[in-house]
Amino acid sequence: MDQLVTEKLSKTYGGSSMALQDVSFSAPSSGILALIGRNGAGKTTLVRILATELAPTSGSASINGIDVVREDKRLRERIAIVPQEARTISWMTPKQSTLTYLMWRGFEYSEAKKRAEESLARLKLDKYADTLNRKLSGGTKRKALAAMVLASEADIIFLDEPTTGLDPISRRDFWEILRELAKDRFIFLTTHYLEEAEQLADTLAVLGGGRLVAVGTVPSIRGRIRYQYSVNLPAGSPVPEVAQGEVTTGKNGEIQILTNEDEAFAISKRLSVAGSRFSIRPVSLDDIFFQLVGESTQGEHEVPTPGADGGWSA
């Protein structure tokens, strides 16, 4: 199976600032791999190394057996990236942007023009094809950037926080584009929208403080955390007795009890009898993220373990 493999990948900037530390994992290079982490977790550094833009300080990485450092030219034949702060060129149109991107990749003008038109139509951007980029909405500009890489022959696409700053409707529109892209390509996506990762990811990787905290499918990561259920009470409620679990209070005073299934139902029963208002649900990816990254940033680094679902390992 085609794999993305990293071995003890590290990157230090300026001799002291460590952005990535011994990141080792393997995951299938198909579908969508979502990399999540806080700002400064090392997501962009990892993407830039894998996309051959940046050399690692130590360690190695390969995609489908192609080494990202030693065989960078070979890998560049197959990859495309939309960097985090990429913008469409203001004095051009989506059609001109896509056409010239393809020509830079070496396509002849006529072939590039044909592919550009097809790609814009596929993403329903044909009505904006000849509109200046500066006149487009933020969401349409992002789609135009996606159209550029979609039009290319690349089968490995890196998208660094492609939906940051988009409104919820535009973001959901963009998800459809990502699903379209992922039909026949490998999408490596970074995001700090956990809902986005949960909706889209075939494989999820979590970075915290430059270290890999977890990797696997969403259910497998869900199964790896200590507490699977969340009981939530409104602000000011009396806190029930919790035999096993963690009690936290949110900024708005809402009380959250993270616990296991049996304890969650036992607490629910007591709260029901007492007539208290509460809700109970399985933990969300948000809760998982905070459990994983919270532990990691406190120095209790969780070493991901190999799983049997989908061939990922760490």
């Binding site: 560049r76 990429a86 990749r105």
Partner: peptide, 22 residues
């Protein structure tokens, strides 16, 4: 401008674009 404001050069580095031709 193309490198810093539009991140075009980053897009081209991660592609088969030739630096000399660019």
């Amino acid at each position: 401008h193309l490198k810093n404001d539009f991140k075009l050069q980053d897009m081209l580095v991660s592609s088969p674009a030739s630096p000399a031709a660019y």
